[in-house]
């Protein structure tokens, strides 16, 4: 089954602050995209808007998921249809064990009727396999959701959830931040294995501030986000280049283009940066 996530001129705000200002991006089955950009450029907002976080309001634009209006769906619909996001700061839920949460989640994703669950034996077998694969401490299943987890444990637990829910399109929001290099390798290996296991059908959007994780998860496309827009895209080499010139170099080019767009309202580019005024 092939999946397609199409983001078209997406504008969104948090409270009164407009964060996304016309984001465009397409992620399809089998593609691995990296979305880079400085802090505050709107990467995390994009991820939350895609998952339907009610805290963020879409102002305009559209997002199609397999030709359906994603923005009209409740978050759980999106998840059941195969969209997944590994959160940068997953919340903790005291009193709810990971095992009971994950069993309910996997059952919902696999289309079990409301209030029906996959058998405990089947779930345990599945969970044990994934826990081993991702080198997560199995004791995590008996703990409350993210409660008292270290930063690294939270990130790994997110990837464990991703492995269990088998998404069509997975968004990883700064999964690498706060992880040491060994943990990044384990997480990356896990994602690569999921990708292979899907018959290279899973689509992945890796949101990251640093190019480090892209050494282990090889992107097919790299995008740079600035001030709520994707301002430049390229192949894997763009990440390397960014590592050298830094976001400041991009920023200078972007500001020049922005000034010209304001003046002339046209398609503009300067160096790597382009901007289509809609």
């Amino acid at each position: 089954m092939s999946a397609e996530l199409l983001i078209k001129n997406l504008w969104a705000q948090v409270e009164d602050k407009v964060i996304l200002k016309g984001a465009n991006l397409a992620v399809r089955s089998g593609e691995i995209h990296a979305l880079m950009g400085p802090n505050g450029s709107g990467k995390t907002t994009l991820a939350h808007v895609l998952m339907g976080n009610p805290f963020y309001q879409v102002i305009k634009g559209e997002v199609l998921y397999n030709n359906e209006d994603l923005l009209a769906m409740a978050p759980d619909d999106r998840a059941r249809k195969g969209l997944f996001i590994a959160f940068q700061y997953p919340v903790s839920i005291p009193g709810v064990t990971m095992a009971s949460f994950l069993r309910t989640a996997v059952s919902a994703r696999r289309g079990y009727e409301k209030d029906h669950l996959m058998s405990l034996a089947e779930f345990q077998k599945l969970a044990r396999a994934k826990v081993e694969e991702l080198q997560v401490d199995p004791a995590v299943l008996g703990r409350y959701v993210n409660e008292g987890f270290s930063g690294g444990e939270k990130k790994r637990a997110e990837i464990l959830q991703m492995a269990l829910l088998e998404p069509e399109i997975a968004i990883m929001d700064e999964t690498d931040s706060g992880l040491d290099v060994d943990a990044v390798k384990i997480v990356a290996a896990g994602v690569n294995r999921m990708y292979e296991a899907s018959g290279k059908k899973m689509g992945v959007l890796v949101i990251t501030h640093y190019p480090r994780i892209l050494k282990y998860i090889k992107p097919t496309r790299v995008h740079v986000m600035f001030d709520g827009r994707i301002v430049t895209s390229g192949d894997a080499d763009l990440a390397e280049e960014l590592d050298q010139i830094g976001y400041d170099g991009i920023r200078a080019q972007y500001e020049r283009v922005a000034a010209e767009v304001v003046g002339e309202g046209e398609v503009r580019s300067a160096g790597k940066v382009f901007w289509v005024q809609h």
């Binding site: 998952m51 339907g52 976080n53 009610p54 805290f55 409740a74 978050p75 759980d76 999106r78 998840a79 059941r80 997944f84 996001i85 959160f87 997953p90 919340v91 839920i93 005291p94 009193g95 709810v96 009971s100 949460f101 309910t104 989640a105 919902a108 994703r109 409301k114 209030d115 409350y144 959830q161 829910l165």
Partner: peptide, 28 residues
């Protein structure tokens, strides 16, 4: 609501998420 959103983002319908959180509240 952040917790509800988190559970819903894992495919749990809102009612199921709320029920799970209430169970969690009493779990102690």
């Amino acid at each position: 609501e952040d917790q509800i959103f988190y559970l819903m983002s894992r495919a749990l319908p809102r009612a199921t998420a709320v029920r799970m959180m209430i169970d969690g509240f009493f779990a102690e």
